[in-house]
Structures are given as structure tokens and as C-alpha cells.
Nucleic acid binder design. Sequence first.
RNA 1: GUCCGGAUAGUGUAGAGGCCUAUCAUGAAGCCCUGUCGAGGCUUCGACCCGGGUUCGACUCCCGGUCCGGGCGCCA
Length: 434
Amino acid sequence: MVLRTHYSGDILPEMDGLQVTLAGWAHEVRDLGGICFLVLRDREGFAQVTLVAKKVDKDLLERVRHLSRESVLLVKGKVKGEPKAPRGYEIIPSDVVVLNEADSPLPMDPTGKVGADLDTRLDSRFVDLRRPSVLAVFRIESEVLRSFRNFFSENGFIEVCTPKVVATATEGGTALFPITYFEREAFLNQSPQLYKQMLMSAGLDRVFEIGPIFRAEEHDTRRHLNEAISIDVEVSFADEEDVMGLLEKAMAKAYGDVAERCQKDLEALGIELAVPKTPFKRVTYTEALKIANEGRATKIEWGDDLDTEAEKAIGAAIGEHYFMTEWPTVIKPYYTQPFEDRPEISRGFDLMHPQMELASGAQRVHDPELLVQKIRKQGLDPDGFEFYLKAFRYGMPPHAGWGLGLGRVVLTMLGLENIRDAVLFPRDRRRLVP
RNA sequence: GUCCGGAUAGUGUAGAGGCCUAUCAUGAAGCCCUGUCGAGGCUUCGACCCGGGUUCGACUCCCGGUCCGGGCGCCA
């Protein structure tokens, strides 16, 4: 049985006289003596509950006056259209039921009158999220997810779920979290990459997955976490240009959907969202390197990965979303297809926001011989990849795909300062709780 | 990992050897108040991260630790 009849946001001044039951938290009590205002907060906003001393039951007034902030309440009463009240209405209560009392003092101030450090906020995330501007980020994130799912659905994709517990450090390179799997050692997967590819051999043709990835790197920055949500896509009989096209369309649609459907949340954040124009610019690695090396003391050599300074310089020069293409084959993973006529350059790409990398993808190697060769070249043992390589020997179509970080999409979309602001319960080098 | 900065009531802060019995806001408790909307007024409560050192005296200076923030690194 749902206790409430309406959210605060559902009520309009025209509903004057209607009997309603609201459920939520005691945001504030303003006692003026002869009149007392209780502000009830729920997910959709605030409702003012007005108690006039002379007209209301004495016990009820005393109870409301002594409510502890953030106690959970049921307010039964009548809607009264009232121009003096916020949003043009107030509730004249017949009863206020305390469902659960909140302790005092609170671990942080949910009204936002007094600030709190990010660390304090994350320690008490359940209170932090009671602030509309904090909740707004996650409603927008929900809309981004909805938008991507719709986009994939409209484009003939199958949504899949691949295992997060895996046997081997499949891709090499990045550090994995080891776990105990009965009597064996296992790992938390760093990417659904290999599984997506196997599903191409299976003939699923177009798949996407939205799920967690885990990286045991000891990075300590505003844009890295050890657990992240990846939006992963793989498409058969397609090349890198095809999947870049999908990615930029999906991104523009996500921005468009948020701009259209999350106006209240954007307002709460004070953001006017500009939808990026498609197609995004294509910048080759070689061109980007030229920009990065301008006026730089220690030049980056062709074939080296770009450091943070370079990424920022290029981002500043381009000023909008762009794809970085034609990466040197040596700095891309083994499953990245090299150009047939110029094997030193690959069909890998990154989707960049001026501030940071958002996604990375490629036309994949589908020839098993070449794949084995490239695995060896990367210093890895093909025997460990047998479960994966097997899928390439019995009819693997050419395919391409990408992986996009959800947190970074939200972070850059909303201009947040820290990836931790875009994740409900972030996991980093130090934080494992809550 | 490394460099820089920081740690003061529940929360956010001021104070830079004795002025500290530590500032302000918020909060909590109480009182006054009939239209508040960050209500207002009055009273009360509540704190110097840990360990060592320097000094007559340390919240303040020095050393070490822990934790936090930022930059970089690491990040197929």
C-alpha cells in the first residue's frame, strides 16, 4: 500500500479543497508563534504545511513544533490555494504522523545553508542526496541511460550481460583486482571487450552492454575511479567509421534528451545545456601531436601516448567534442585493426571532450592469425586467450565497437568538478565505504 | 607513487607563540513573535587530528604519522 496520494510536485493551487496525503521528510519548521510552517520535502519538491495556532489542534501543533529535522512524516490534510505560499498552495493538516524520527545533530546540512566537503558528503551520501541539486545529477544520469538504451533499441541492438568475474587477466596492461573464487583465483573484469567480440562470432550482430568495469590502478585524480560504468557497443560487418557515427549520434541524442526532458534538474544545477553538433570533428593523432607540441619544452615523439598536458592543449585548441583517429598501432591494444596499407597506423579512435577522454574504440582484428601475432607482440601468452581465440576460428565476422564511460559523460555534460560527484557511491583508492 | 596545500564544535569557518575561558554562521535546547519562505530577536550548549620535540608557555613553531584537497604520474 502506497501511503502517499500525491508528490509535492503534483499539487496545484487549483486543487483547492482536495484531501491529500503527502509523505516525505521534515525539511524545516519555521515557528512564528501564532503561525507555524512545516516544510515537507519529497523527491519532487517541497510542500508548505501551515498550522495556525488558533485554528489547529494543540497536540498537533506541539508535535510539529518539536519535530526533529529530517524525520519521516505523513501529512494528511487539505490543499488550500494561497498566493502567499510558495508555489501558490499550502496544506492545512488534519494530522501529521511521524513514521520515523531522525536523530540530531545531522551529519551534514541537507538544506545547503552550510556547505560540506566532498568527503563529508560522500560519508553521508544518503543525506547529501536529499539536496535537490545533488539528486538532479542522478536524475540526469538516469535520463542519459534511458536515452542510450532507446537509441540502441531503435538501431537494432541486443542488450547483453557479460560476466564480471573472469579467470585471467585477459587484456594485459592494466592492473586487475584479484578475488577468491572458491579454491581458485579469479579477477574482476576490466572491460567486456572480449565477450562482446565473442558475441559477434555468435552472430548477435549488434550488442550493447551497460555495466561495471573494475581497474586496480592506483590513480588518484578527479576523473578516475576504480569501479566505473561502461557503455559498451560492438557491431558486426561494420568498420570504425560506422561505430564513430553511432557514437556521435548517441551522444548528441543523450544531450538532446537531457535538455528536453530534464529542464527542472538542469535549472536546479544552473546549467543551460548546449547540444553538441554532429558530425564531431575528426583529428588524426599526427595532427593532434602537432598541436600538442607547439610551444612545449619536452616534445612528444610520434608513437608515444599523449600525456595530460597534451590532452588539455589539444582540447583547448579544438574546443568541442572530437574524435582522435589514426593512432599509432603500438599504443593501441592487440585487438585493434591496423590499416592494411599503413600497418604502423591503426583503426583505433578515442572520443574526446576538451577536458578528457570519454570513449575509446576501433575496428577490431578479426583474423585469428593476425590476432595471435599481435597478442604475442604485446608480450602476452595466446594460451591464456584460448577461450577468446577459439571464437575467431569458426566464423568471426569483421566488427568494430567502443566503450564509453558513463561517469565521464555526466561529468563533462554538467561541468562537474569531480567524477565522484557523478557517481552515487564512488570507489577510489581509499574509499570502499559506503 | 610523487609534489604542493590543508586538518579548529555535528556541519562550514576565523584565529598564526601568552590577547584563546578560541571567532562567526549553521545546528541543538529554551523563551518571545500570525505569513514565514536562508524568518527575526534574546539566553544556553557544543571544537583546536594523533605522537614526539622546542619553549617559562604550543591550537599556533619543528619532526614523524594518519586523513583530506589539488597537480602530475600510472591508466589495453
